[in-house]
Simulated assay, not measured.
Amino acid sequence: MDFTLSEQHLAIDESVRRICANFGDDYWTECEEKARFPHEYHRAMADGGWLGITMPEELGGAGLGVTEAAVMMHAATSSGGGYTAASAIHINLFGPHAIVVHGTPEQKARWLGPLIKGDQKACFGVTEPDAGLDTTSIKTFARKVDGGYRITGRKMWTSSAQVADKIVILARTTPKEDCKRPTDGMSLFYTDLDRSKIEVRRIHKMGRNAVDSNAVFIDDIFVPDEDRIGEEGKGFSYILHSLNPERILVAIEAIGLGRDALRRAADYARDRKVFGRPIGQNQGIQHPLAECWANLEAAYWMCMRAGSLYDSGQSCGAEANAAKFLSGRAAFNAATQAVLTHGGMGYAREYQVERLFRESILTRIAPITEQLILSFLAEKVLDLPKSY
């Protein structure tokens, strides 16, 4: 049982931090305030070879596992960019997973190469306004026609659709009522984001404004057969393969954000003097920050355990979900305490902790709620009756 990072992991961490050091607080503040996608950061990560860390080597990727991707994303989010830095490149790590596993050689070469090089950006159209986390109830429908499909429907909370060239679409190809199981009859597509047929409406939100979130309206777009991933009707099973990696990566990204917030709080507490002494000398400041460190540390190693299990082909559903739950709360608490430690200045944009605080709540909500995680753990780990 080894609880240390390998030399490879340390090298990944160091290399990613070297790139991130070129993007300081002023850069992220400017992207946030102007709601501008961090194209320069995205390009730097692509040029460094990091956008293909989990993709096949023969296509220019590194062919590494979720654990290595987790180390990379922790370095990115803990280096000042927060959840914005994660979201700008996050989809490259889990979004194309169905293509890697179920795509044809021609599809992999056509689609993955441009993503790895950073020449194209993609977005993920799964969630719908009337379905939420009940994915089997999506209404977006792909009607079979000669040579392909015509797709119509709506998607919600589609990140980076304002700048994306491609879109992953989960759509029904068989009505739910005609399927033997509710998870049947859905198909997965990866196609051009044709803005003459797809309207992208930006959602104004609390934080992470540099990476857009959108309501997407798909109006009878034609998608050729060669843009369908795998078999018709198997789309839901394909996206299931990416759920545990996504949970692990979101969790480790939250830890990175929380650790950056905690670092900023500790730095401020050492420097800020009130009544002739550093506020960090007071146990009322020390103890909450120390507790944040302990919770972040525990959650971090749950992330790494989940990643290790996944990469070795073992079951990791419970660990991945627990990592997401623990990390989201630990990050939110650390960001909250960072604002409180700064006092009034924690409310000022200059000190960055308010930005991290606004982003931290997202790690508790998406891509799955805490309540569904607890229901999953109660049923799958504690053998309690299914509650929903």
Rank of each mutant, 00 (worst) to 15 (best):
Thr183Met: 13
Gly185Pro: 03
Met186Val: 10
Leu193Met: 14
Leu193Tyr: 00
Asp194His: 08
Asp194Met: 06
Lys197Ala: 15
Ile198Gly: 00
Glu199Thr: 12
Arg201Phe: 14
Ile203Glu: 10
His204Trp: 10
Met206Phe: 09
Asn209Ile: 03
Ala210Phe: 05
Val211Ala: 13
Ser213Ile: 02
Asn214Glu: 07
Phe217Ala: 02
Asp219Ile: 13
Glu226Met: 09
Asp227Lys: 06
Arg228Asp: 12
Lys234Ser: 15
Phe236Asn: 12
Ser237Asp: 14
Pro245Lys: 11
Ile248Thr: 03
Ile248Cys: 03
Ile248Val: 14
Ile248Asn: 02
Leu249His: 03
Ala254Ile: 06
Ile255Thr: 06
Ile255His: 06
Gly256Arg: 02
Ala261Gly: 02
Arg264His: 13
Asp267Glu: 15
Arg270Ile: 04
Pro278Trp: 08
Ile279Cys: 04
Gly280Ser: 08
Gly280Glu: 04
Asn282Val: 12
Gln283Tyr: 13
Pro288Leu: 02
Trp293Lys: 09
Ala294Cys: 11
Asn295Pro: 04
Trp301Ser: 10
Met304Cys: 09
Ala306Val: 14
Leu309Asn: 00
Tyr310Asp: 00
Asp311His: 10
Gln314Thr: 15
Ser315Gly: 13
Cys316Asp: 03
Ala320Ser: 11
Asn321Ile: 01
Ala322Arg: 02
Ala323Tyr: 05
Lys324Phe: 11
Phe325His: 06
Ser327His: 08
Gly328Cys: 09
Gly328Ile: 00
Arg329Ser: 06
